[in-house]
Design a protein around this nucleic acid. Structure first.
Length: 597
DNA sequence: CTAGGGTTAG
């Protein structure tokens, strides 16, 4: 970094003014080791207690995820003022540490430092949840900032992120505002659009005195999020000014509608392609299983001199995980290493998840164990991953290690450990976790937890308990629950015993081909071939409405996806011949195929 | 202070 070049020895620094000049550009420094050098020089000159210099340093360290240094510097300020706290709060928010942000705010109050109007916008960014936003609102009233447009805009934004109730509160606040600027309108429009209240958002948009591009983008996003690409596109075409946000929103809209051609056309036409647009288009191809295109664009992006940012990496890795594209995943992993993009927790989590989902458990484990810092997502992902690969005992061990290291398991962690127990046949262990979850950790079971439990009991052969739980749980059974019950019946040949209950449950989701396929297996096991034919016919009729599950494999540079009875491959005749030969061979060596499973 | 992509759950 050029700014730092002149600061070579303490001799250069005679006065604080020189430092001020050098330090005003400090936030441009993205290399932690360079920052540490600067810090050393500053310590020598004993200027680290200076508020101005310290706040600059906190900002700079927080931008390259060096929060420990940022906090240390803050603690050494002699008499921190509101600005010093604001910077610290923003630093925590930037690094996804909402509870630390709140802690800083509390500390500020306990030291009697009065917040200013800039405190709340930062603070509110850290919060999610109606209660905490409402509490902050009360605080704002107590300290007499209710007239400030900056604070009110932030409150509207924060409220409208809290679901329908929050949007109501935001509307109320908005209507009571004496003065509104374009930001107030934009916050409100975006909030309404995100809550799906498009008509109201549109009305507000139409009545706005002045529209800049941000308002258009907010309403555009609303239409895209609710699946109205055509309306969005009409709006897009009538916009007076389109920026990269408008373009990328439209590209996302078409990707979501499954229209990658149109998404690609728009992407190609984009005057300035930024990281977000690249991310959307590459993840789109990856999500659809179009490995070559995804790979080609990824290379093209890097050749254009663009370095993927954290969002890009996380997004593409997520798409790789969903489609099993370990090749692209490795490619992304390589560029993370090459660009010395320090492995943030979220990037590492995304990598662990990708390797787990692509079947590379060893690589997932090695990244997980190499992480300097972990959060509950890291633990949950790894626990679930171990379970997925059949290592139930290891998952249980990791769960204990997680709690020993002071991480509170959340509802997702329990889904992971419950499914791990289920896969490994650890029935009693699983039941214990289900109770501990509620008693020791106050996690209230949701329908997914009941799904895991039904699966756990069912697989373990405790069918009646499984059915009992499905009947008595405080939720209506869904297709997942039915699926778990059907799988259990199929596995344990408990056809007649469960049939009545089953029929009742199956009514719920006849559209799920996976469940129907299991049902037909069960009929086959009892020799009820008429019902088998019925179920198969039903599936065939449905196949036009809903795609059935597909499997995929990556061989060399090619990625193949295939479904049941798939004949799309040019060599499918040969493939099926090979399958027949394999079957013949298996029969010869004594394998008996059963119609059930 | 306002707009776009983004890690854990069958």
């Amino acid at each position: 970094m050029q700014v730092l070049a002149p600061i070579r020895s303490p001799r250069w620094i005679s006065t604080r003014r020189i430092f001020e000049q050098k330090i005003s550009d400090l936030h441009k420094c993205t290399d932690p080791s360079q920052l540490k050098q600067v810090l050393a020089v500053i310590y020598k000159s004993n200027l680290h207690t200076d508020i101005f210099i310290a706040t600059k340093l906190i900002s700079a360290f927080s931008l390259c995820r060096q929060m420990r240094s940022a906090v240390t510097i803050h603690n050494q300020i002699r008499q921190p003022d509101a600005q010093a706290y604001n910077v610290l709060i923003r630093a925590h928010v930037r690094n996804s540490q909402p509870s630390q942000a709140f802690a800083a705010f509390s500390q500020m109050q306990s030291y009697g430092v009065r917040p200013n109007v800039f405190t709340y916008p930062f603070l509110l960014k850290a919060f999610s949840g109606l209660e905490i936003v409402a509490a902050t609102h009360a605080h704002v009233e107590k300290f007499g900032f209710v007239e400030d447009i900056l604070v009110l805009n932030s409150l509207i934004e924060a409220y409208s992120k809290c679901g329908l109730m929050g949007v109501c509160a935001a509307k109320k606040l908005f209507s009571l505002m004496v003065q509104r600027d374009h930001v107030s309108y934009n916050c409100m429009i975006s909030g309404l659009a995100k809550a799906g209240q498009l008509t109201e958002a549109r009305e507000l948009f139409d009545e706005m005195p002045e529209r800049d591009t941000v308002s258009w983008n907010a309403i555009l996003d609303g239409y895209v999020k609710s699946g109205e690409v055509t309306v969005a596109f009409q709006l897009f075409q009538s916009m007076p000014l389109r920026d990269s946000v408008s373009w990328s929103t439209m590209v996302l809209g078409y990707r979501k509608a499954g229209n990658m051609e149109m998404a690609r056309n728009l992407f190609d036409e984009m005057p300035v392609k930024n990281m977000v647009a690249w991310t959307i288009i590459i993840s789109g191809y990856a999500e659809k299983g179009l490995l070559k295109e995804a790979m080609r664009l990824y290379n093209e992006m890097e050749e254009a001199g663009l370095k993927p940012d954290e969002g890009t990496i996380i997004s593409i890795l997520g798409a790789c995980a969903d489609s099993g594209m370990v090749g692209l995943g490795r490619r992304v992993h390589d560029s993370v290493k090459r660009n010395r993009f320090s492995f943030s927790i979220r990037v590492s989590n995304a990598l662990v998840n990708m390797y787990v989902k692509c079947g590379c458990l060893d690589e997932a484990l090695s990244i997980f164990h190499g992480m300097k810092e972990r959060n509950s997502v890291s633990w949950s992902t790894m626990i679930h991953g171990l379970g997925l690969h059949g290592y139930g005992e290891k998952a249980v061990q990791l769960f204990s290690r997680m709690t020993r290291e002071g991480f509170a398991p959340n509802k997702v962690t329990f889904l992971g450990i419950l499914s791990a127990c289920s896969h490994a046949g650890l029935v009693d262990e699983g039941i214990r976790y289900f109770y501990r979850m509620q008693r020791d950790y106050g996690v209230i079971p949701e329908i997914e937890h009941y799904g895991c439990m039904v699966d756990l009991l069912g697989r373990g052969g405790r069918l009646m308990e499984a059915f009992g739980l499905a009947h008595n749980m405080p939720f209506e059974p869904n297709d997942k629950i039915c699926g778990a019950l059907l799988a259990a019946c199929r596995k344990h040949y408990a056809v007649t015993r469960a049939e009545d209950e089953l029929k009742q449950l199956v009514q719920l989701d006849l559209k799920n081909t996976g469940n129907l396929s299991m049902l037909s297996d069960i009929y086959a096991a009892t020799g009820d071939w008429t019902s088998v034919a019925g179920a198969r016919l039903c599936m065939k009729n449905m196949s036009s409405e809903k795609p059935s599950g597909a499997s995929s494999i990556e061989l060399g540079d090619e990625y193949y996806e295939f479904t049941m009875m798939d004949r799309s491959h040019p060599k499918s005749d040969m493939i099926y011949q090979m399958i027949d030969q394999l079957g013949e061979h298996l029969r010869k060596i004594g394998y008996v195929h059963t119609a059930s499973c």
